[in-house]
Design a protein around this nucleic acid. Structure first.
Lengths: 372, 372
DNA sequence: GTTCACTGTGGAAACGTTTCCATTTTGGGC
DNA sequence: GCCCAAAATGGAAACGTTTCCACAGTGAAC
């Protein structure tokens, strides 16, 4: 009996058959008190734990769900995953994690290994939900799954996320409300992020609807130098731009840094707004105006959605002809979070606010116009 | 043949036995070209993929390693995990992720489910490596494992990390070099983080060795209000404190925010230094002086260490009496990263530097005294 | 024509579990 | 004391794979 003890070892020590051990340990059938005790003693003595592989093989479910995201570097994904893991854990599931690095090929390859591991469900974020080999495979193998962050209108697949278009439109409206006339949208991975595109769309719509010119699109790299160069060129061509909307908070912070390096003050010269509402956005100075999204809840919701579909499915065995429950689209609420990085366009008020900026020797608390 | 096709289905379609299919697909024995082609066609036609559960059950290895960390909210863990995932993937392994929330009970519970899933190895960060039920279980079941971030001197367990004591001592030396006489150490989860303790020890040592009074310890909560209250009390009792060392970067940023709320300028009134070197620390203003640690590399190294031990072990089957290779301690280099959050104590130079602070309307690039 | 080594092949056992089924035991009602 | 239902139990099949083993063919050397 080298290696881990098996149910067979327990049976032998307890002096009974393996079926009895299984029944005792799973409470899945009648057992005498005597046997029950003997088994429990044997388990204790041996330190026995079930081998989930044997179990899974028999029951044909792994009690594991896969999580496939572009990266963990962006805190939104980290938060969502923590939510997924938490909810999954509560429901008796484990998660297997793969990062795709915003690469569609890696998405597909990762997914294949995940499927061959017999994961019971998949929670994922893809580059382009409208053209994704990974999603095709998922549907083709009728693997239960749920998108997060991807929140496309047409519901071919279950998804939970926020309405990016509406959120971005709100951002645009807030800017217009503050008298900004000319804005630009800054994005990384624009072509491999439908979120960026949706946000840009909503942003444009706000300006269009107010009769203003649509904001330009600035595609950049995360490399700080690249950002500086790009922004420098943009402001050379178009010095009137008074506000930037970054496709995510991390990028927004990078923009602020780059703007400073270019000798522009935020928000006096240029305002900046982010997206996601990561925790750090609230720690820095100026604190970042952004759209706060419930990443963690998104993860929790997705996990519960996928897993509930799983258990429902297995019990509903008498109707196995349906290809699974129809896709569900869950839209979670977002919230605009104002911050010092967004100020009105060229007004007295802007100048007054500037006085509370750390540049002044003022010792007043800074969080004056923060909603939180 | 409802559900996924199995090797049996392939065999049937190819008109051969399952053993042949296995041999073809694994290149694990002689096969005629004819059979080989038939099998390949059948695989193609059926879209067959191995069921890894059956495989694992037979081979008694899951090709999965577990990752157990306190949280994903702190970017250091997220980065390390990305490194682990990347390296594991390259070596044909998947990772299963559990967060313990800095809770020793959760560590143990999580580990148990992980072990019952037959993970081949475990990479983890625990609250207290000297008194960890999880680590005991790991040794007791002789599961290959490796600590990350925990980097205790005595090597009962393999570990990869940086020398926290030395790093913190260096931080102390830098401060002393800049004429600071009185410092304090700020920590969250002090009692469930040996990292914090090691850093505090090293920090104290630096001051002690220079004949200065040992810095006080400020234990706080992450809640921003709590931090403000704590710091306020500290500076009331001890107004001479000119520099804070935070146990990690996230906390350092929170400290800067709290100090501002208390009307203190950073670094003019109080300097702040962090630990970890997270990317964002370099984006904010003032950019954070910190100790930069190779988190991602730490993850990669740990993954390679654990997995190499695995494969080495299985091949070395003729000597199964040894309880596994002896623990390896890998110490990765750190680097002090200067930043505007740390300035000399009350000197002319400090005032000059202050001029480059965004408070001034100066348009000079800011990263003047940054090493990077 | 016999032996031999080798290639190719499939049957079957094994991995650890769950669960169906058949068997034995129990105990209550007569 | 008998009968029958219900409770308790263990044997064995099954899940999908790998791999040992035995067996059939194929040439080559004698």
């Amino acid at each position: 009996m080298t290696g881990k003890p098996t149910i067979k070892d327990v049976a032998e020590l307890a002096g009974c058959g393996i079926a009895t051990v299984s029944r005792v340990l799973n409470n899945s059938g009648p057992t005498s008190l005597e046997k029950r005790q003997q088994v429990e003693e044997a388990v204790e003595a041996l330190g026995f734990q079930f081998n989930e592989m044997g179990r899974s093989l028999k029951s044909n479910q792994s009690k594991a769900i896969a999580v496939l995201v572009p990266t963990l570097t962006n805190p939104v994904f980290a938060d969502a995953i923590e939510g997924i893991q938490e909810a999954a854990s509560e429901l008796g599931y484990e998660i297997i994690l793969i990062c795709s690095n915003y690469n569609a090929d890696a998405e597909l390859a990762g997914l294949k290994t995940l499927i061959s591991r017999q994961v019971d469900g998949v929670i994922l974020t893809v580059s382009d939900p409208h053209e994704s080999a990974a999603l095709d495979l998922l549907r083709q193998t009728s693997t239960p799954h749920c998108l997060i962050f991807n929140h496309s209108g047409d519901i071919q697949h279950s998804a939970v996320g926020v309405d990016n278009v509406a959120a971005a439109r709100l951002v645009g409206d807030k800017m217009i409300e503050l008298n900004h006339k000319k804005a630009a949208f800054v994005a990384v991975h624009f072509n491999s992020s439908d979120r960026s595109k949706a946000r840009y769309d909503g942003f444009c719509a706000a300006f269009r609807d107010s009769g203003l010119r649509e904001p330009g699109l600035i595609e950049v790299d995360y490399a700080p130098k690249d950002l500086e160069v790009s922004l420098s060129a943009v402001f050379r061509d178009d010095p009137d731009i008074s506000v930037l909307f970054a496709s995510n908070d991390l990028l927004a912070l990078s923009c602020i840094r780059a703007l400073r390096a270019l000798g522009k003050r935020v928000p006096e010269d240029v305002s900046v707004v982010g997206f996601d509402g990561i925790a750090i956005a609230d720690l820095v100075e100026p604190n970042l105006a952004t759209v706060s999204t419930p990443c963690r809840a998104m993860g929790r919701t997705a996990a519960k959605l996928v897993i509930s579909g799983l258990t429902g499915k297995s019990s509903d065995q008498n109707a196995p002809d349906q290809p699974g429950p129809e896709p569900t689209l869950i839209t979670l609420p977002f919230e605009f979070r104002s911050g010092n990085s967004l100020a009105p366009y060229r007004t007295k008020i802007a100048d007054e606010r500037a006085a509370t900026h750390p540049s002044a020797v003022a010792t007043t608390p800074l969080n004056i116009n923060q909603t939180k």
